[in-house]
Amino acid sequence: MRVLIAPDKFAGTLTAVEAAEAIATGWGRHAPDDELDLCPMADGGPGFVDVLHASLGGELLAVTVRGPHGAPVPTTILVQGRAAYVESAQACGRHLAADGDAERATTYGVGELLLEAAATGVDEVVVGLGGSGTNDGGAGLLAALGATGDAPLDAGPAGLAGLSRLDLGPVRDRLGGVRLVAASDVDIPLTGLFGATKTFGEQKGIAVDRMPAVDAVLEAFAGLAGARTALEKGAGAAGGLGYALLLLGADRTPGVDVVSAAVGLAGRARSADLVVTGEGAFDFSSRSGKVPYGVAAVAGEQLRPCIALAGQVLVGSREMRALGVESGYSVVELLGEERAFGDPAGALADLAERVARSWSR
């Protein structure tokens, strides 16, 4: 039996590569004769560059940029052919912003990363969006590219309060005509009830009672930069980084589609008898550009069954099938929370071994 193993990261515990290896280890214990094809995935968030480098090869360039609270942070640019790939979470991820004021976290370093990527001479820069600890509407990114105003653009949404003048004139010339692609895992707008602040602000550390004020600041900022763009799908990705990239003329595409094409997911699914995906928490939000939904969609197109292994499964069987997944299996439910977090790789391997008893021939 041929099994394609294509999980995302298990956030906070395992990278996508480690998750794929753990699933393969457990599966192989029960079914050592099965052919296992390991295909770690990403949706634009943490791990985006590493997964693409593992599949595409290319050259990794080390670049130091300003982190969300000013400290220098190391990042990498993947250059492959005429394209460069960068990961916004490396410059402004939640792991970098956790110890500071969420309302002052900036995306300035992502702008620096874009400039460095464009300077490599490529024709296209693909920006992975996801896992950010910022909520500044991409103002910091624009500031790094030369935008100016009568309030600081590189001090998070707090800095944007009172902004009444904005000049984006120098910004579009700084990238030298390089085509931009925003590879995002969500399609929300910048502001409003379903916008960046309301949807993800709390998990980034913005107090619930501050959300209306922060959203109002971003709405005023968008009024100066381009209100119509703020309503486009993906404008709210990565706390509004999607908005800044759309202002720069970027094309938006689901990050999982970028990775799927790079790793040849469709062909590998066609050659498999079963597709196994997974992530830390498998819930209905997985439908919004997340890896399990993307992998299941490809498996369905190739008429192959898809199952999911996750830290937690938070959807019922009906919702699961709506996502294209035949069955979902939870590490926490079957092995307990203590085991799941104490030994994540071992617990996922044990779960995979149990699942193989049901699915391997």
Rank of each mutant, 00 (worst) to 15 (best):
M1Y: 09
D8Y: 07
W27N: 02
R29S: 12
D33I: 04
L36H: 04
C39S: 08
M41P: 10
D43L: 05
P46W: 01
V51L: 02
H53R: 10
L56F: 02
L56W: 01
E59K: 12
L61Y: 05
V63K: 08
I77A: 01
L78D: 09
L78Q: 08
Y85H: 05
V86F: 01
S88P: 09
S88L: 07
A91T: 11
L96M: 09
A98R: 15
A102Y: 08
E103K: 14
G109W: 03
G111V: 12
L113P: 09
L115D: 11
L115V: 12
E116H: 15
A117H: 13
A117I: 11
A118D: 09
G121L: 07
E124P: 02
L129N: 13
G133Q: 02
T134P: 07
N135C: 15
A139R: 14
A139M: 08
G140S: 06
L142C: 05
L142T: 08
A143L: 10
A143S: 15
G149C: 07
P157K: 13
G159Q: 09
L163V: 12
R165S: 12
S184M: 10
D187M: 11
P189Y: 12
T191E: 00
L193K: 14
F194I: 08
G195Q: 01
G201E: 10
Q203R: 13
P212W: 03
P212S: 11
E219L: 14
E219G: 14
E219P: 01
A220T: 15
L224W: 00
E232Y: 13
G236V: 08
A237V: 10
A238F: 06
L245Q: 03
L245R: 08
L247R: 14
G255L: 04
D257Q: 15
V258G: 07
S260E: 00
V263R: 07
G267I: 06
R270E: 15
A272E: 09
V276H: 08
G278K: 03
E279S: 05
A281G: 11
F284Y: 14
S286M: 00
R287M: 14
S288P: 03
V291G: 02
V291Y: 08
G294T: 05
R304A: 00
C306K: 06
I307Q: 01
A310H: 08
Q312P: 10
L314R: 13
G316C: 07
R318T: 10
Y329Q: 01
S330I: 12
V332M: 00
E333F: 09
R339K: 06
G342R: 04
D343Y: 00
A349D: 13
R354H: 04
S360N: 10
